[in-house]
Structure formats: structure tokens, C-alpha cells
């Protein structure tokens, strides 16, 4: 029995140590640089380079998207004839907080031949008319674009290796399992582009997917995950504030009192100035 248990442990250990090797032999067809965005005290937004290899002859789009979530909004309108305030609630049940798309060509050019709706590459597909009327959708999208969370950059996905990081070419043969079988490894081309995330982006896992367009059909070529996480002091402070609000409030008050008393002591009036 002990031998069996020992054999299982050894087997599991081998499997763990072998996994990176497996990863090297079958690299991802899509590379993000960085793959993990760390929100520290100096974080001021991030630029994420995406590099991918797709079959020759394809046009493509890369979509960065957060998990669909409930968004509670208010519709602004005039009250009493002159005051702008919330006049009604709007709840969107499953809309991502972040939605960015880079494409090689304008989506309008591929739309006539390909049904794009299931791929959620356009705002109207992401938030259909039945969920939010076009006027309010435009307002919502405008708000999100203003915050830098939503963006569609047609032509933002360029062919060729990135100038900024020539090392970044995705290894040949990488997307073999994802590409249509008719395309051989050497008939591939590189694409690159940048997603720009604002400082207000929330931590979490965001999906990044490449969708290829050819011959009146769209194909999911590959996908990966972008991780965004708080680190260091930012993480500790946030955890303290959210998980231990009372302790955080007491600590904030105590530190403020100490700073205030020190300031009062340092700048105290001299005895001859006090009257």
C-alpha cells in the first residue's frame, strides 16, 4: 500500500515538472506582453502588446473582454426644468466591464459576408437593441470609451513582427491545433497590436481571443487569459480597507491624529507670539 502511495506521489511530481516542457513544445499561438498586469502603487494604466500567428490569407480580430457582469446604471435627465439628475435605473445583466477589439480591417468590410453577431465584436452585438435601445447604448459606450475601458480600433492589429519587440514573434507551428487543418505551419503570418488599459481597470481575469475571417466564415483561432491583480502595498491596503474596514478606519484616524499633533507641535507658536 505504501509502495502504491509512493509511486503515485512520484508520478504526480513528474507530471508537475514535465508540464513546462509540454508548454514549450506547444507554445500558445497568442502571446501577451505582459501576461499579468500588476497594479502597484505606481500603476497608471497599462499597455499590453498582443502578438499572434494566424494562417495566411485570413483577416482577424483580437478581442479583450472581462467576464459578463451586472451593471447598475442611472439614466440622467432634467428635473424641475433645469437640474440634471438620475431619473431612472438601468440594469444590464451581463455586460463586461472591459471590452476592447483590435482588427486588421474595418469590421464593416467583413460584415456583409460574415455573420458577426455571435462573435461579439461590435457594440451592437455586445449589447443588443433588446437589452438597451441604441440611443442609450451609444451613451453607455461613450461613457465606457471615455473611461478607456471600451475601444474598437479597426486597423489596430498590424501584420508583421512588432518593431518594439522583435523577439516577440510567436514560434512557428504554435497554432497548429487551433488553425484549420488545410493551412500548414509555414503558411502563417504574424500580427501585433496594443490594448491600452486605464488606471481605473479592475483586477480579474480577462479573456483574449483571436477570431479569423476567411471565405465567408469566422473561426476562433486561439485564446488566452490576461490576469490583472493588485500587488504589494496597494493589495494590502485594499484588503485592509475592504475586509477589515473598522481596523482600517481606526488606523487611518490614529495616523491622522499623530500627524496632526506632530504638525501642531512643530509649528506651535513661540511664547512671545501666542498673544
Amino acid at each position: 500500500m505504501r509502495r502504491v502511495a509512493f509511486a503515485l506521489v512520484v508520478h504526480a511530481g513528474l507530471a508537475v515538472t514535465a508540464s513546462p516542457v509540454m508548454g514549450q513544445s506547444q507554445p500558445s499561438p497568442i502571446v501577451l506582453d505582459p501576461q499579468t498586469v500588476k497594479i502597484g502603487m505606481t500603476f497608471d494604466g497599462a499597455s499590453i502588446e498582443v502578438r499572434c500567428r494566424i494562417p495566411s490569407g485570413y483577416e482577424a480580430a483580437v478581442r479583450l473582454m472581462g467576464r459578463p457582469e451586472r451593471q447598475e446604471l442611472v439614466r440622467l435627465g432634467k428635473r424641475a426644468g433645469f437640474l440634471w439628475m438620475g431619473v431612472g435605473a438601468i440594469t444590464l445583466e451581463s455586460v463586461p466591464a472591459v471590452f476592447q477589439v483590435l482588427t486588421t480591417v474595418p469590421l464593416a468590410d467583413v460584415a456583409p459576408q460574415i455573420t458577426l453577431a455571435p462573435w461579439s465584436l461590435r457594440y451592437a452585438d455586445l449589447i443588443p437593441d433588446r437589452v438597451l435601445d441604441p440611443t442609450m447604448r451609444a451613451q453607455f459606450v461613450g461613457l465606457k470609451e471615455h473611461e478607456g475601458l471600451f475601444a474598437i480600433r479597426e486597423g489596430g492589429l498590424a501584420r508583421g513582427a512588432s518593431v518594439s519587440s522583435p523577439r516577440g514573434a510567436v514560434p512557428k507551428g504554435a497554432p497548429a491545433q487551433a488553425m484549420p487543418a488545410a493551412v500548414s505551419d509555414d503558411k502563417t503570418e504574424l500580427l501585433h497590436g496594443h490594448f491600452r488599459l486605464p488606471a481605473g481597470v479592475r483586477p480579474g481575469d480577462y479573456s483574449v481571443e483571436i477570431i479569423g475571417f476567411k471565405d465567408r466564415r469566422a473561426v476562433r483561432l486561439a485564446g488566452t487569459t490576461l490576469h490583472i491583480e493588485h500587488v504589494g502595498v496597494a493589495r494590502a491596503l485594499r484588503r485592509l480597507a475592504l475586509d477589515h474596514g473598522l481596523a482600517y478606519g481606526i488606523a487611518a484616524s490614529l495616523i491622522a491624529i499623530v500627524v496632526g499633533l506632530l504638525t501642531g507641535f512643530i509649528f506651535r507658536p513661540k511664547s512671545d507670539e501666542s498673544h
Partner: peptide, 16 residues
């Protein structure tokens, strides 16, 4: 800010 039309006719409920 209260009487001029806002940039967007929609806002987050409860702030950010």
C-alpha cells in the same frame, strides 16, 4: 455641473 447637460446621459449607480 448641475444645470449644464452632462457629457453622457447615463452614469454609474452609486458612483464607481
Amino acid at each position: 455641473g448641475l444645470i449644464l447637460a452632462p457629457d453622457f446621459l447615463i452614469a454609474y449607480k452609486g458612483g464607481h
